[in-house]
């Protein structure tokens, strides 16, 4: 096994530890808690009245355009992370280059803003 994956083995161990902890707690709760089933208790909570239609109803996901913008900027930041680490050694040229890249992206943000994409209604 190479050193890279060895470094990350605690993550796997911690995942199992977390899952084990939740399972154990829920098991204890299961043993201690009472269990009396009635129809009223098992129905969906909707402020006391019976549910109209299904819980899985159609709805408008208004954040659709936000999500597309999010993808653009998030990919940009993935590009920027390696750049930040070596940036100081690269000097002024890297600065102007990155400003060009950023200004194009910021232009996109301003365009979306002007087009009313960033208005939640």
């Amino acid at each position: 096994m190479d050193s890279y994956s060895i470094t990350y083995t605690p993550v796997i161990a911690a995942t199992f530890l977390g899952i084990g902890f939740i399972s154990l707690t829920l098991l204890i709760a299961n043993l201690l808690a009472p269990r009396v089933r009635t129809r009223g208790k098992e129905s969906i909570y909707e402020c006391g009245s019976p549910t109209i239609g299904q819980g899985w109803s159609q709805m408008n996901l208004r954040y659709y355009l936000y999500a597309i913008l999010f993808l653009i900027f998030e990919i940009e930041s993935v590009f920027l992370f390696p750049w930040t680490v070596v940036y100081k050694g690269l000097g002024p040229f890297a600065f102007w280059e990155m400003m060009l890249f950023m200004s194009m992206l910021l232009f996109g943000l301003v365009y979306a803003w002007r087009k009313g994409v960033l208005t939640w209604e």
Binding site: I44, Y45, Q54, G55, S57, M59, Y63, Y66, F70, S77
Partner: peptide, 23 residues
């Protein structure tokens, strides 16, 4: 998975909030 309208609305809001503040 709750099959409840409130929780469905809540989860839609959570996604919108998470992606907006992640940036």
């Amino acid at each position: 998975s709750s099959g409840n309208k409130y929780s469905l609305l809540g989860s839609a809001r959570v996604v919108a909030q998470l992606i907006s503040y992640e940036l």
